[in-house]
Design a binder for these strands. Structure first.
Lengths: 226, 226
DNA sequence: GATTTATGGATTGTTGACAATAATGTTATG
DNA sequence: CATAACATTATTGTCAACAATCCATAAATC
């Protein structure tokens, strides 16, 4: 049934999706060396499409590949994770500004609704970090696409988020400050609704900077290990 | 002879490089539909490695690919080109700031030397837009790597620059304001040398913004066609 | 005459076999 | 006993044939 939607979904696409989610969800651990044949049997693929998918994943930075030596999942150090957040800070700041200028009223309404749903989730599934992380992802996803900047959205959604999510799933407690984050989200949406791009950019940058600092202190305290 | 340097350089890497330069240099025009077999005969490849390279290029946004329908070079509209410059503005601003904080003294000296070389080139080959563009690329390349932010450098050098360069070659006159640009470059390097990250970021953003406006007005005047 | 449908051709997607290379374990020597 | 050279083995890189899909041309019907 689910294949009814997809127009034409090649084996390589299938391989790409499988591997990407496997990496993000942690089924394939960072640093783990994986053989092509093993991957084939694991995901019911042949090596042709698999290799095409490996190429894509390598160029996206989720895999590292040494000729004749095999492929392994990229392992990101704590410093590199912080660098990722610094990139996010500037890029999502831009996304928020452009979203404020370009989102339709309908999209803004949807964004409000999304936040309401997140609030429900936080209250109901208190401490369930998984839903929290997914809600966070949903919020940032909407703003990235709302920027109407195709390349920006592609870079955020296609490159950065997967790397960050990879560690979200693993750490399983991205921010640990759900109410605070939700409040910050609300303010950002307010700024967008008022079409105040400058403010939206400022608030988004501060929001991501706070998340980065939060993780940084946790790592320094030894509460999180990467 | 040239293969003596490369440790292990697979056919897919070869295909990737060939296609990328062909796209950037304009041997393959935007929107042009290209068949796999034609590409194979043109670059002396077989379809296996070629397809792997096509996958990589697609995921980098230089190619668009519809299943069973073939592959064509991406065509960027004027608006999309402007969006690319907006992304560059924020990301290279970050790169300049981090470069000011992290570049070694040796790297900064090299940067000075690079600018001197560019000045020579501008005087000698007056109006030769090609060298000018290459010099510009060299400058931005050094700052991206000098940021010591691996992912940032990867995104700038691996994604954005190739798209921008694609149109540099085609338009063959990126800025048309060589002395002005050189002067801006000098100021940025000065700020980096003084380890003033904040200033370096500000100047870099202004520099790229000026370049963007320059192209924008040229397009509006009909002096440039994309 | 225009639109729709079928058929043929060309092109892409996939597969499995073959060749080249690097990692590993073994043996011989200092 | 440690080290280095060698051979083996397993894995990756490459290739060419096969199958599936789409596009264009042409015929037929409204």
């Amino acid at each position: 049934m689910p294949e009814a939607i997809a127009q034409t979904y090649t084996r390589a696409d299938e391989a790409f999706d499988c591997l990407q989610t496997a990496i993000v969800k942690g089924d394939l651990s960072p640093g783990e060396k994986i053989g092509e044949v093993e991957l084939c049997s694991r995901f019911n693929l042949t090596r042709g499409p698999l290799r095409e998918a490996l190429g894509r994943l390598e160029s996206r930075g989720l895999l590292v590949r040494r000729p004749h030596a095999g492929v392994k999942v990229v392992s990101v150090s704590a410093e590199e994770l912080m660098e990722l957040y610094r990139i996010r800070e500037t890029m999502e700041g831009l996304a928020a500004r452009q979203a404020a200028e370009r989102m339709t009223d309908q999209e803004i309404a949807d964004l409000h609704a999304t936040l309401d749903a997140h609030e429900q989730m936080i209250e109901q599934a208190q401490g369930q970090a998984y839903y929290q992380a997914e809600g966070d992802y949903d919020f940032h996803h909407r703003i990235a696409t709302g920027s109407r900047n195709a390349k920006l959205a592609q870079m955020l959604l296609g490159d950065l988020y997967y790397m960050v999510r990879m560690y979200r799933y693993r750490l399983s407690t991205s921010s640990g400050r759900p109410h605070m984050a939700l409040e910050e989200h609300r303010r950002i949406v307010e700024a967008i609704a008022q079409r105040d791009g400058e403010l939206a950019e400022f608030l988004m940058k501060r929001h991501i900077n706070a998340a980065r600092k939060n993780i940084e202190t946790k790592i320094q305290n030894g509460a999180l290990t990467i």
